[in-house]
């Protein structure tokens, strides 16, 4: 008898709880949608001024498997990647000033993937938001270790983990804004970056073009970061539903 009473109580409370959750959820969702004006975007191109520096070839002979993968396609360093019309690839663009509230704090749900392929990193630079999960995978039949080396003062914690052939992906995230160098000690030439930023971001393709989506209207400072040449900034104003333009030029050293 007593037991039945209890179960009734439980059922009622569960119903109540569910109602609460649904109400809260819809509230928060509507709230978010209402506050958001139509978003704009920032686009542009990043170019290199001058002749592209010579990228040294990579001697992979310590690992015969890697050598085999590059038999017809010699590998080169990717410190500066220049495409057609001097477009500069692998440049990370993000809004360094002017964002606030949800636009700053929202975490994208997409999970970017950092692949170890033919003893190189694809992509060479992986951009992500603070707290955003990303995956490190391996497509190789040789073991790698993933060794990001953040500055411990930022709050990001260094780690170092092997990924032998066939190992499952490693899923991680970062706590603080930082351009984190990542390397493989087994293949010392393997070098890449985790570009951890706050808010919307983009990364240039080989032609140097980029688009930062989902930017609420406002005035911003956009920063372009390139691993060899460092930072450049530009001021832009984004109007609702419009696309603002910011181009950058890095001088070849």
């Amino acid at each position: 008898m007593k037991r039945q009473d209890n179960s009734k109580l439980a059922a009622v409370s569960v119903c109540l709880l569910l109602c609460l959750v649904v109400a809260g959820l819809s509230l928060s969702l509507t709230n978010w949608e209402v506050s958001a004006a139509p978003e704009g975007k920032i686009t542009g191109t990043v170019k290199l001024d001058g002749t592209a520096p010579h990228m040294k070839g990579i001697d992979m002979s310590k690992d015969p498997w890697c050598v085999k993968q590059h038999a017809n396609d010699p590998a080169h360093l990717e410190l500066v990647v220049v495409g057609k019309d001097n477009g500069l690839g692998n440049v990370v663009l993000y809004i360094s000033e002017g964002l606030s509230g949800d636009a700053l704090n929202a975490k994208p749900t997409a999970v970017p993937v950092f692949d170890q392929k033919n003893c190189l990193y694809t992509p060479h630079v992986l951009a992500m938001d603070v707290g955003q999960e990303f995956k490190v995978e391996t497509s190789d039949q040789t073991a790698h270790n993933i060794h990001p080396e953040p500055n411990p003062l930022t709050g990001n914690i260094p780690w170092n983990q092997s990924q032998p052939p066939g190992a499952p992906p490693v899923t991680k995230s970062w706590k603080a804004v930082e351009m984190i160098h990542v390397k493989c000690n087994i293949h010392p030439w393997m070098s890449g970056y985790f570009a951890v930023v706050k808010g919307p971001y983009a990364i240039t393709g080989e032609d140097g073009s980029y688009t930062i989506e989902n930017v609420p209207p406002g005035s911003y400072t956009v920063t372009a970061w390139q691993e060899t040449y460092g930072n450049q900034t530009a001021k832009v104003t984004v109007a609702g539903g419009q696309s603002a333009k910011a181009d950058f030029t890095f001088k070849a050293k």
Binding site: A143, N145, Q161, S162, Q163, P164, G166, A167, P168, V170
Partner: peptide, 12 residues
């Protein structure tokens, strides 16, 4: 979990 993902030992 990191040392033996899925029960397979990593080198370390």
């Amino acid at each position: 979990k990191t040392g033996a993902p899925g029960g397979v030992l990593t080198p370390e």
